[in-house]
Amino acid sequence: MADLNFLAPVPDAVVAYTEVLSPQTIGKKIKIHTKEHGIPDLEGVEIVLLGVLENRNDVNYIGEDFNLNEIRNAFYKLFPGSWSTKLADLGDIYKGETVEDTYYALKETVSELVKLKIIPVVLGGSQDLTYPMYRAFDKIIPMVNLVNVDRNFDLGDLTQPIKNDSFVGKIILEEPYNLFNYATIGYQTYFNSQEQIDLMETLYFEAYRLGQVSNDITLVEPVMRDANIVSVDLGSIKASEVSLNQKVSPNGLDGKEICAITRYAGISNKVSTLGIFEYKPSKDDEITCILISQMIWYFIEGVNNRVEDTDFKDEHIYQKFITLVDSQELNFYKSIKTGRWWIEIPFLNEINNKLKRHTLLPCMHQDYLDACNNKIPQRWFKAYQKNCV
């Protein structure tokens, strides 16, 4: 557990707050890293909270500090669902001497936790912290899928140093090249240049507009089912749902939608890290903290309801459907257990393709219906094109 030594304990004031809570609340059931008792035993723990008090690479940074005490208080006083999932709060990673020091601490901590099959829920801080979360997977899996819930693509100027609006550019450009797919959920066109929108298309990345997501929240499910890392920018939430300093745009996801999105992330069997970023406390702070605590609650609810349904070696647990679209044979698989759908991506044997572990792509029933009507599913097309690159 040496790599967890970067962690500072949960503040005494927050620990003291748990003393007055009802015995049935999360605060009474969660294992807490305290000054008195140190890091708790993580045996059997499946999800941990991890604060990162770093915001120096925020493009609007003016030297302000923040803490996560109110978020913890709001989360601790919630009542758990009918969960078997064990939780722990590992405390905070403080700002390092440099931002790179903080990145290193976060990368090593997340890497250690993922190796232990523990899901860290990272609370921050500026969203560039997604970059060290991504780098934590360098020696764990060969290719990484990243989902960003955001109004922006965060591609930024690829030639400039990393900031919270350009961290994806660094992920794309820097070796080792481990990024397979990047998807943005809830983007708003007027916050993104046409050049960036075109670049997303050129790279065959996925982008779902706010209107699409609001009209049909189930679009999010197959995207999350294929994600390893999910990063949420609180700026994607509409101004009426959050506190004064948190207000970014009158348009955005509402509270119900963002909680549904984190629940989909939890249900995904592949999501092994969730980050919630761009928290900016203010005097009327309570509503944002309550919303974040509910987002975490729904993520845990999702994890607790995970069902393994990808054993496609057993013909008794799935149905296979074959369609023909423009002379291209498409193979669909439907889990009998959950009703979830996948589409097969064929190998291109003549090239050194990246898809050795991505032969089945999560999709929706609608994709199958579209294929029956001679329409190629967009997710399949983009994954296929990436395989050809």
Score class of each variant (00 low, 15 high):
126 S>C: 08
126 S>R: 06
130 T>E: 10
131 Y>N: 09
131 Y>I: 04
133 M>S: 14
137 F>I: 04
137 F>D: 10
137 F>P: 07
138 D>C: 00
139 K>N: 15
142 P>V: 05
142 P>H: 02
142 P>M: 06
142 P>E: 15
143 M>W: 03
144 V>R: 05
144 V>H: 08
145 N>Y: 11
145 N>G: 05
146 L>V: 14
146 L>R: 01
146 L>E: 09
147 V>T: 14
148 N>C: 11
148 N>Y: 15
148 N>S: 14
148 N>H: 15
148 N>K: 13
149 V>F: 13
152 N>K: 15
153 F>Y: 13
154 D>W: 02
154 D>N: 15
154 D>A: 08
154 D>G: 03
156 G>E: 01
157 D>L: 01
157 D>P: 06
158 L>A: 09
158 L>H: 05
159 T>C: 01
159 T>S: 13
159 T>V: 00
160 Q>Y: 05
162 I>P: 09
164 N>C: 08
164 N>S: 11
165 D>A: 01
165 D>L: 03
165 D>Y: 03
166 S>K: 02
166 S>V: 02
167 F>M: 09
168 V>W: 07
168 V>A: 11
171 I>C: 02
172 I>Y: 15
173 L>H: 05
173 L>F: 03
175 E>I: 02
175 E>K: 15
175 E>Q: 15
175 E>T: 13
176 P>C: 04
179 L>E: 05
181 N>R: 12
182 Y>A: 00
183 A>I: 02
187 Y>R: 04
187 Y>I: 04
188 Q>L: 14
189 T>G: 11
189 T>D: 14
189 T>W: 11
189 T>P: 07
189 T>N: 12
190 Y>S: 10
191 F>R: 13
